[in-house]
Amino acid sequence: MLNRDLFHGFSLQSVDDKGRVAIPADLRETLDGNSPAKQVLITRHATLPCLVCYDAGWAQELNERLNNAARAAKAEGKPFDETAERRAQRAEKATYDANGRFVIPGFERERVGIAKWAFFAGDSDTFQIWSPEVLMAADIDDDDLKDRCRYYAAAKKVAL
């Protein structure tokens, strides 16, 4: 898809008891540019214990890619489980205010263990939201991401 800004930046944000959190300014600026409707789509990462967030334009791109893959598989006589692929794209939509505040859907928040803090990480076409504690305990090969989370936690005097 053309003319989309990419998500870059990191931040540790507090989460209130209702699951409200503010999207960091650099990520929110990208969302605003890509999706003036002030909406973010939220789903669980396919393999990591975190959330993945993106704008409606990226959702349309993913849908187009899925449709193309289904057509190509059919043309080549190859099996393609479109139902499973569509299931992987399930997302909840949340509206955010001018300050970037939105409520992380309860089901999604619970699935990845987000409680009092949320660590945001820009990841080009999407951004991730992690529970800092889950990230620190995760068996992933990304020491840089863990180091960044530690850095932002220390800056806010948050013990991990």
Rank of each mutant, 00 (worst) to 15 (best):
R150P: 01
I129T: 04
F102H: 12
A115Q: 12
G57A: 07
D142C: 08
W58T: 15
V103L: 08
A59C: 10
G106T: 10
A75C: 11
A75W: 07
A137V: 06
K116C: 04
L145S: 09
G113T: 06
N67F: 01
D81C: 03
S131Y: 02
R86D: 02
V103A: 09
M136E: 11
L135C: 04
F120S: 09
C50N: 04
R109F: 05
V52Y: 02
K116I: 04
M136R: 11
F119Q: 01
A155H: 01
V52F: 03
N68V: 13
A69V: 08
A94F: 00
K78L: 10
G100I: 10
E61I: 09
D123K: 03
C50L: 03
D97I: 07
D55A: 12
E85A: 15
K93R: 15
G57C: 02
T95P: 04
A59P: 02
E85G: 05
D97V: 08
E92V: 07
Y96K: 12
D142H: 12
Y151I: 07
F102Y: 14
A91S: 15
A155Y: 00
P79R: 08
E61W: 08
D143K: 12
A73L: 03
S124V: 05
V103I: 14
G100A: 10
S124M: 05
D141A: 15
E85F: 11
L51H: 00
V52R: 07
V112H: 00
P79C: 00
C149R: 05
A118P: 00
A70W: 06
A155D: 02
P132I: 09
I129E: 01
E76N: 14
W117A: 08
A73T: 05
D143H: 11
A84K: 07
A46N: 10
I104F: 01
R71K: 15
A59H: 13
E61M: 12
F107V: 12
D143A: 15
R71F: 07
A70T: 11
V103F: 03
Q128G: 05
D142M: 09
E92S: 14
Q60T: 15
A46T: 11
A69R: 12
L48T: 00
E82Y: 04
A121V: 03
A69W: 02
R111Q: 12
L48S: 06
W58H: 14
A46E: 11
A137K: 15
R87F: 14
E110W: 06
G122S: 06
R101M: 07
D141G: 13
E85D: 06
R111W: 03
R86F: 04
D144S: 10
A72F: 06
R86L: 11
L62F: 10
A155L: 03
V52C: 09
C50K: 06
D147I: 02
P79I: 00
P105W: 03
A121L: 05
W117D: 11
A155R: 07
Q60M: 14
F120E: 09
N99E: 13
A94C: 04
R87D: 08
R71D: 15
N63F: 08
A46F: 05
